[in-house]
Structure formats: structure tokens, C-alpha cells
Amino acid sequence: MTLTRSLLMTALLASSLSAFAAVTEQVQVLDGYVREVPPTQQISAAFMTLHNDDMSDHKIISATSPAAKTVELHTHTLDEGMMKMRQVPDIAIPAGGDTFLKPGGLHIMLIGLTQELKKDVPISVTIKFEDDSEKTLSLPVKSVMPMQMKH
């Protein structure tokens, strides 16, 4: 009886804890990277897979990075035969699901780069969720070319 009760209490406590856990604890970021850019290019983008472990939907509401003057959430849509890039207010991550930030789709735009993007020098990007909790990522810089240039 006592054991059952204490187990129940523990379960209740655990569930209430999870309900109060910050969104940043519930969302995992996988395979993140920032795209290497041609010389003089002032903009780049961060791509990643977001996994939501939680039973509720979550979203990214903004992002910042010391590597760029402005950081915006963007998406691409194919409309009237044109690839249109537009700012979005947030990026949703469905409960128990994944959201893919990838070329040609959703991405975190780094506008006005303040530092040169170099391979092997990771870029810090902080993403903020709807409850204002944050996650700071250290993202590697990757070339768009799958193979390395032979000089």
C-alpha cells in the first residue's frame, strides 16, 4: 500500500516536473551546420533537424548569433515558378515529430556576417523557443559541395 502510494507520488512528481520543463529540454537538435559561403558573400544560413520529444507542439520564435548582424527565420516556397524566400514568425516542431531545416526550405538566415565562415571554426547560434527558453548551438561550417575542391 505504502509502496503503491509512494510510486504514485513519484510518478505524479515526475509528470509535473516534465510539464514544467523548459521547451529547450524537450527539443533535440541534430545534424546542424552553417553553410560555407563564397568570398564576399554577406549572408549564410543554418540548417538542422529539430526533434520534439514532448507530447505538445513547440516552436522556435527567434534566433541570434554573434556571427551575424541580423538573424531571421525563413522559408522558401515555389510560387509562380519562382523560388520565393520569406521571413516566417516561427518554426513549429510537432509533438513527437521532426522539423527539417534544409536547403530550399526552412532555414535560419544569418544576415550581415560579422566573421568569416571557415571550415573547422564552429559558429554559435542561439535558438529561442515559445517559452523564452534558449538553446545555444555550436554548428560546424560545411561546404555546399559534397566533394572537396581539388586545387
Binding site: 541580423t70 525563413h74 515558378g81 544576415i111 550581415g112
Partner: peptide, 21 residues
């Protein structure tokens, strides 16, 4: 090929260009 200028958020770049790809 089709293209048109598009405002780019409040970013420092002013505009991007929508274009067929």
C-alpha cells in the same frame, strides 16, 4: 526565366530576388 525583387525582412540587405531556378 522569371524574377522579381522582394523585400528581405528588416535585414540589412534590403532585398532578395525571387527567381525561377
Amino acid at each position: 526565366a522569371v524574377y522579381q525583387k522582394a523585400a528581405l525582412g528588416e535585414g540589412a540587405l534590403g532585398y532578395s530576388v525571387d527567381h525561377s531556378a
